[in-house]
């Protein structure tokens, strides 16, 4: 999987959990402020990314993921994709 494919897949996964179409998910929208994502939904987003990419996201990172871009960056780091 290359970086672009990963970005698209993370976007698809996050949009699915939030319940919106991927094309309506801006990369820099604040999950909590702009998309009504609370801490419980953040856990579900994290779990969905973990299951999709077969990675473990450290618990302390969950509250730091506030945008799609941050979710993508963290996933890339954990998969060592640049």
């Amino acid at each position: 999987m290359n970086a672009q494919e990963l970005e698209e897949k993370v976007k698809e996964v996050v949009a699915s959990v939030i319940g919106i179409s991927a094309d309506k998910l801006p990369a820099d929208a604040d999950f909590a402020r702009d998309l009504d994502v609370d801490s419980m939904k953040a856990i579900e987003i994290t779990g969905a990314i973990e299951k999709t990419f077969k990675i473990i996201i450290p618990e302390e990172e969950i509250r730091k993921i506030r945008t799609l871009n941050q979710a993508i960056t963290l996933t890339k780091q954990l998969l060592n994709i640049k």
Binding site: S39, M40, I43, E44, T46, G47, E50, K51, E59, I62
Partner: peptide
Amino acid sequence: NFKIVEFGGV
């Protein structure tokens, strides 16, 4: 367990 952390879970 879908995802469980200290402050909650799915």
